[in-house]
């Protein structure tokens, strides 16, 4: 049951037949782990808190730097030097005190990540390096926890959704088998804020859709976003039978 305050706060959700009171209740029960509180994690966390996702766990190990403020919209100039997860947690609680927010201010080793996954319904990968992305993917495959992956550099974005609760689901490693840091990131390539914000926002949208039971348009797909033309390309991803992560054990 939703309280009178909740009925008012989420009234624009309740007007939608796709959400309604039962959908809002599912959002309230939901537990989401967001890894990375940068340009993707900022809008994703804000939207999920605003939407009433009942349990958010925030993970990062960085402190806020002045160069983050160009795109990481949770933070203000006065936050420089503060841990990202602590500032985000405080903002989210100010935004919505009905939800529970927990912060993990460290780089989680594999074992701790696996333990966190036993308590998560869904993971958003909002990180900034391939090695961590591969570790998150592997842990989600093993724990059978669905994973929404976002990435962006320059004026390009990538978005994908792997439902690891389904045994036949492909994984991030099927698509990008390399864990070598030859890949591009925001500090070596540059990024425009709204590009990474678009991808983080869509990770939040896919999370909300997942919990209210709407089908995802990106399951087992890779969406490429071109911030110049605003064109999207959609690619189907099949399970790689040779994949060492999700292939037959």
């Amino acid at each position: 049951m939703l309280s009178d305050n909740e009925l008012l706060r989420y009234s624009r959700h309740l007007l939608l037949e796709e959400v309604g009171e039962s959908g809002q209740h599912k959002l309230k029960q939901a537990k989401v782990l967001i890894i990375g509180m940068g340009g993707l994690g900022s809008p994703a966390a804000l939207y999920l808190a605003a939407a009433g996702i009942g349990h958010l766990v925030l993970n990062d190990f960085d402190e806020i730097e002045v160069s983050n403020l160009q795109r990481q919209i949770t933070y203000q100039s006065s936050d420089i030097g503060e841990p990202k997860v602590e500032v985000t947690k405080q903002r989210l609680q100010q935004l919505n005190s009905d939800i529970k927010v927990r912060s993990i201010n460290k780089q989680m080793p594999e074992q701790q990540l696996s333990m966190e996954l036993t308590m998560a319904d869904l993971v958003l990968d909002c990180t900034d390096n391939i090695a961590t992305r591969q570790m998150i993917n592997k842990a989600c495959v093993e724990a059978k926890v669905p994973l929404i992956v976002g990435a962006a550099i320059r004026l390009e974005g990538q978005l994908m959704f792997f439902d690891h609760s389904q045994a036949e689901s492909p994984c991030y490693h099927c698509l990008f088998p390399s864990s070598e840091e030859q890949t591009l990131n925001c500090s070596n390539s540059g990024i425009i804020g709204p590009v990474v914000g678009t991808i983080g926002t869509l990770q939040a949208l896919e999370a909300i859709k997942y919990f209210v039971g709407l089908p995802s348009g990106i399951k087992n797909k890779l969406k490429l976003f071109d911030g110049k033309s605003l064109d999207w390309q959609t690619f189907a991803i099949n399970k790689d039978p040779q994949c060492p992560v999700c292939g037959q054990a």
Partner: peptide
């Protein structure tokens, strides 16, 4: 528009008219 896994690149012989997309993994966030 169908991703071909790395392990299958040598097995896929390109056909006339194939529409091939090449892109890089990006890590930024």
């Amino acid at each position: 528009m169908q991703v071909i896994s790395r392990s299958e690149w040598t097995q896929y012989n390109i056909n006339e008219g194939d529409n091939i997309s090449l892109f890089q993994a990006i890590a930024g966030g």
